Computed example of a mutant assay.
Amino acid sequence: MNALIPPSVRLERSDGSAHVVLGQARGAVRLRDLAQRGSAKAFLPHVDSAVPEVVFLNTSGGLTGGDRLDYRLELGPECRAVATTQTAERAYSAGEGAARVQVLHEVGRGGWLDWLPQETILFNGSALERRTEIRLAPEAGCLMVESVVLGRAAMGETVGRLAFRDTRLVMREGRPVLVEPLCLDDHVLAAAGSPAVLGGARALATLALVTRGAEDALGPVRTVLDEPGVEAAASAFDGKLVMRMLAPDGWPLRRQVARVLAVLRGRALPQVWQI
């Protein structure tokens, strides 16, 4: 427990959920249902595109021990949508327990989802457990990215202690297509300078494209994996294209992610991204 807080004091924790349902109606993708509670919000800004954008927001301003956050998006058959977060999520020092985040998106038959959340910034002493699952129906596909930054280099912050467990899954008809477990803790940070771990990097990202013929994008993607200061590689097989990136700070990583997304998407980034 934080030494500045008496053990008898029970701190208030944030708890929020936001659930959006989109479906086809009169030849367009339209909002079918919206439910939100507590610190989690969702809104659909007007964009000049036939593909709607869903923006999730945590109004508590960050996460700490004991907080709960739940985002969910359902897309009906043949629906295409982009989902993102309004800003970077921040996990602050946790006096006790871990913050827990659940993300569940379902994509109907023939649908498509771009899940493009902004970075997660982990501060010293943070504790966060997150599970992201995208469920694809037959002939559905997705593009997803997750970026993690260890503190803010410009502010001189260092991270020597944390507990971060992140699980990302893409399922198709109940079967796993992509499983991405990530664990960062004190032991990993102690060896973070090793090439077998982070190689001294403070920012990392994984980007995955899951669709029939994803392998065809490997060549074009590799041509833009040359952002200064970023180490990146890509591979593709069996309807999946996966890229991993390491950088000394979040800004060059963000530029590299944006360049890859431009190749894969062929259109502008979500409006809330600031590039």
Rank of each mutant, 00 (worst) to 15 (best):
Pro7Asn: 11
Ser14Ala: 05
Ser14Glu: 03
Ser17Asp: 05
Ser17Leu: 06
Ser17Ala: 10
Ala18Gln: 04
Leu22Ile: 13
Ala28Val: 10
Arg32Gly: 11
Ala35Glu: 10
Ala35Met: 09
Ser39Val: 15
Lys41Asn: 06
Pro45Gly: 11
Phe56Gln: 03
Leu57Gln: 13
Gly61Ser: 12
Arg68Ile: 07
Gly76His: 02
Glu78Trp: 14
Cys79Ile: 09
Ser93Val: 06
Ala94Gly: 03
Arg100His: 07
Gln102Val: 13
Gln102Leu: 13
Val103Asp: 00
Glu106Gly: 04
Arg109Gly: 10
Gly110Tyr: 11
Leu116Pro: 03
Ser126Phe: 00
Arg131Pro: 06
Glu133Phe: 05
Glu133Thr: 15
Ile134His: 03
Ile134Gly: 06
Arg135Trp: 09
Leu136Ile: 06
Glu146Met: 06
Val149Trp: 00
Leu150Lys: 01
Met155Arg: 15
Gly160Ile: 07
Arg165Asn: 14
Met171His: 09
Glu173Ile: 04
Pro176Tyr: 10
Glu180Cys: 01
Glu180Thr: 00
Cys183Ser: 03
Asp186Ala: 09
His187Met: 12
His187Gln: 11
Ala190Ser: 15
Ala192Gly: 14
Pro195Phe: 06
Pro195Ile: 08
Ala196Leu: 13
Val197Leu: 14
Gly200Pro: 11
Leu204Ala: 15
Ala205Gln: 04
Ala205Asp: 02
Thr206Ile: 09
Leu207Tyr: 05
Ala208Pro: 04
Arg212Ala: 15
Ala214Asn: 08
Glu215Cys: 08
Gly219Asp: 04
Pro220Cys: 04
Arg222Val: 04
Val230Asp: 08
Val230Thr: 05
Ala232Met: 08
Ala232Ile: 10
Ala232Tyr: 02
Ala233Trp: 00
Ala234Val: 12
Ala236Phe: 09
Gly239Asn: 15
Leu241Gln: 07
Val257Asp: 00
Val260Asp: 01
Leu264Phe: 12
Leu269Lys: 07
